[in-house]
Design a protein around this nucleic acid. Structure first.
Lengths: 193, 193
DNA sequence: CGGCCTCCATACGGTTGCGTATGGAGGCGA
DNA sequence: TCGCCTCCATACGCAACCGTATGGAGGCCG
């Protein structure tokens, strides 16, 4: 792994490193924490470095959002290699309920949807996720309206439960919640591995 | 200053007015928007007024949180006047899914749960709401674990759907979602009015 | 070896928000 | 009327952050 210690060994930074650090700051402190100087401190460098790689703070936020969106695309691409629709959906749910950090970022970004930059990406990513899930249900023969309603309930439930876990109201989402979500989607609860 | 009717009828302000304005700022711009000077501008006064009523910004945030918590207590007190448990739950869901602004505030606060002030109140309010719902299900004879699981799914679904509405993924929660939530709770969907 | 290019540090001015100090306008009782 | 109390305005110092300017260390290449 790349040593991320202080500037001991003079590792050079690229825009991706800044975007990654910006996402970490976003998850911890919200959009307001994605500030140039604090993120620079987090990386162990100064602002001078930042303004070499980026024009301004806006560009950093855009890079962070792009990296977050790319993560969603990566997951979807990985899921599309699975032939069986039911397995695809169950793997999606496992990934979604398992990645608490990404859920936290999603939560932060949704609450910050009034920001024009954030809003555009959040809407696009959410639509992408919902459409993907709906397509899986369509392959399984569910009618359009029914599938849409179930997908909204399932994705909304995912977001909300992630919130409850975050505040400690629900300790560590039990595996049965994946089954519950599968049931809401009209799919069999047990994995046919 | 010849101009002084900027504030209309309410000439003098009290702490409650500041707390209300702070909640409005919170819903719009998040916790970071609960700043002294912007809220003062919102009320049409200056900082000098604020520091008469409050010691510092922290006190303003605390007052806003207290007012938000009081709203939850007010709703619960109103619900407890209803004798029939099923009616109580259905009225609760109608109120919850109907008040989009309060859902937005809940969302903002949950995403800001790392803040010690916010975290304490958010956890207490969430526990209060969950316990109240669980108690209703218990009155209806549902076993403890089952009730807890259903309440978590329902409250999580509420939060998540509010998020989807907020980003425009689900346009205007249809009334059928209340029925869906009732079904998740193991209760009859139709109101017996 | 000398020049250039990349990446980063330092220093500066501008803006915004926090908190304090001080004073002023208006109501109210003596 | 006088004096006091309440509520608010103005002015100031301080800190955090944005963006710019400028220079410097180290690698690469002629």
């Amino acid at each position: 792994m790349a040593e991320r210690d202080k500037r001991g060994t003079a590792e050079r930074l690229g825009p991706d490193d800044w975007a990654r650090a910006a996402l970490a700051a976003l998850a911890e402190g919200g959009l307001g924490a994605v500030a140039v100087e604090p993120v620079a401190v987090r990386l162990g460098v100064s602002k001078g470095s930042f303004y070499w790689h980026f024009a301004n703070r806006r560009a950093l936020v855009e890079a962070a959002l792009a990296q977050w969106e790319a993560g969603t695309e990566r997951v979807i691409a990985r899921l599309e290699s699975l032939d069986e629709p039911v397995t695809r959906m169950r793997t999606l749910l496992d990934l979604a309920f398992g990645d608490a950090e990404n859920a936290a970022i999603s939560f932060r970004l949704i609450s910050e949807v009034d920001d024009p930059l954030v809003g555009e990406v959040v809407r696009r990513v959410s639509r992408r996720r919902l459409d993907f899930m709906q397509e899986v249900l369509r392959e399984l023969g569910q009618p359009e309206g029914e599938a849409r309603r179930r997908v909204l309930a399932a994705y909304g439930g995912y977001l909300g439960l992630a919130a409850l876990v975050r505040i400690g109201a629900a300790d560590e989402v039990p595996g049965s919640l994946v089954d519950l979500a599968m049931a809401e989607l009209g799919l069999p609860p047990a994995a046919p591995s």
